[in-house]
């Protein structure tokens, strides 16, 4: 089953074309040019859009705008190609790419997205329950490297590929396929807006 996977929730856009577990291609670019990558992946794989059978799309948490661009593209593809898909947490994909590691994604405003007991959460770096000798990956750990390392965290060097989600893992984690319109973003934060007293 030819599956297109991508995730634009973090600082990069990752995309992969996977067929029955075999990775036919994988690319990294920016969110704006996600579909250029998708186009290149299909051309390299000798496939046409109509050959796609499923989507695996990152739902965050991460940049709100980034998450939406990925999901909007997925919804457009699903509508035009009559595809179903699976939403995959960006944190789960990071964890799948670095077994044993805890994913930590920068959430701005001095906070990070991470997994707490397997559940996605947004919290201050100081509130991460750092287990000494445990590996932390995902970019958010890099930003707060000094703070986390002082508490015993192991953090790969900045350029280590484990810091970035890889779409092949989204494809691997995509299990149940649903209508793509039902795949919801994982924001973890309410919009910044005050209700006006009337």
């Amino acid at each position: 089953m030819l599956t297109l996977a991508f995730d634009t929730a973090t600082e990069v856009a990752t995309s992969a074309l996977v067929d029955e577990g075999e990775v036919l291609g994988e690319r990294v670019s920016s969110t704006r040019t996600l579909l250029e990558d998708v186009d290149a992946l299909l051309r390299q794989g000798g496939a046409r859009p109509g050959d796609l059978r499923a989507l695996a799309v990152g739902i965050g948490p991460g940049s709100f705008t980034g998450v939406r661009i990925g999901l909007a593209a997925a919804r457009g593809l699903a509508l035009a190609l009559d595809l179903r898909g699976a939403g995959v947490s960006t944190l789960d994909a990071l964890a799948a790419g670095a077994p044993g590691a805890v994913p930590v994604v920068d959430a701005r405003r001095r906070e990070v997205f991470t997994l707490v007991d397997g559940e996605p959460a947004v919290l201050a770096p100081a509130d991460i329950d750092v287990r000494e000798g445990t590996l932390y990956v995902g970019g958010g750990d890099r930003r707060y490297r000094a703070e986390l390392e002082a508490r015993g965290a192991l953090i790969p060097p900045d350029g280590d590929e484990r810091h970035l989600p890889c779409a092949r893992f989204h494809a691997a984690l995509a299990r149940e396929l649903v209508p793509v319109d039902e795949i919801e973003p994982l924001y973890l934060r309410a919009p910044d807006a005050k209700e006006r007293a009337r």
Binding site: L34, L35, R68, I69, A72, R75, G76, A80, L81
Partner: peptide
């Protein structure tokens, strides 16, 4: 609104690309 525009643009690109 840039974030709003990007939603429509991503969906439009995807639809156009799917159908060439």
């Amino acid at each position: 609104l840039i974030g709003a525009l990007l939603v429509g643009l991503a969906a439009a690109k995807a639809i156009a690309w799917s159908r060439r």
